[in-house]
């Protein structure tokens, strides 16, 4: 079986600083991958390189069978890679439902077999998505006034609205209460039902262990472990990186 996302020896430098050093990673269709690592290990850089916001110095990103390494971000989401931002970035002048209409009108309909919805259809589909994440009661409100947890839900809902095959959730739970973490976790677990593979980047280990079918560990720009969650956590290298000896 060929992977949905195949990151091949990806390298990213900032001046002299090597943020990612030949990182390779694969994600299968529908898979749930947890990506962990200490602060500054390159997780967010990896997200930015895969989603197209940063240019890479070497290596390739293969998605769904084609090399997308040179494509700008808007083409990558059209190809099926959606992401959420660590610090939510809502379209603040728009209502919650209009936030979802932007990807529905711009990111969909570019893959074979997909058609772009018309304006009215887009609103219906957006409303369906909002219902599934529990934001339907806020559909008409301005996005700028949402609470933290609702803001995170909106990030994920907007990503779903692009009809992706892969979702990269960049610390979607940071700073939330325990019950809120569970809400977001349920939401991410439900992606399987939509056939969306998820890369979850997270510090909250409880959530990572509950969520992941597989865990990869990034330390200082290198991938040091990749495999079954319990085995990875027991790995002495990983323990050293986390506990800092």
């Amino acid at each position: 079986m060929s992977a949905l996302l195949q990151i091949d020896r990806l390298t990213k430098r900032f001046g002299g600083f090597v943020a990612l050093d030949q990182v390779s990673l694969q994600v299968a269709a529908g898979e749930r991958l947890g990506l962990i690592g200490p602060n500054g290990s390159g997780k967010s850089t990896l997200v930015n390189c895969v989603s197209g916001l940063l240019r890479t110095e070497g290596g390739a990103v293969i998605f769904n069978g084609s090399d997308i390494s040179r494509q700008p971000a808007h083409q990558r989401i059209r190809a099926g890679i959606a992401r959420s931002f660590q610090i939510p970035k809502p379209f603040a002048s728009m209502s919650v439902i209009d936030n979802l209409c932007v990807p529905l009108l711009y990111a969909t309909g570019h893959r074979p077999g997909q058609t772009r919805p018309g304006e009215a259809q887009a609103r219906d589909e957006a409303f369906e998505i909002l219902r599934s994440v529990g934001l339907d009661a806020r559909a008409g409100e301005m996005s700028a006034g949402l609470t933290q947890v609702d803001m995170r839900k909106l990030e994920l809902a907007r990503a779903i609205a692009a009809r992706p095959m892969l979702l990269i959730a960049d610390e979607a739970m940071a700073g939330l209460s325990t019950s809120e973490v569970d809400e977001i976790l349920q939401l991410l677990l439900s992606m399987k039902g939509r056939g969306i593979a998820v890369i979850m980047i997270e510090h909250i280990m409880r959530a990572v262990m509950q969520f992941s079918e597989r865990v990869a560990v990034l330390v200082a720009g290198h991938k040091i472990a990749d495999g079954d969650p319990h085995e990875v956590i027991a790995n002495p290298d990983v323990q050293r990186a986390y506990l800092g000896e």
């Binding site: 916001l53 002048s93 932007v102």
Partner: peptide, 18 residues
């Protein structure tokens, strides 16, 4: 709507397919 998305947050707009 695409222009408004750019005005509100250009990175988020690009990542929403604009």
């Amino acid at each position: 709507q695409g222009l408004a998305a750019i005005r509100d947050d250009e990175l988020a707009a690009e990542c929403a397919g604009v």
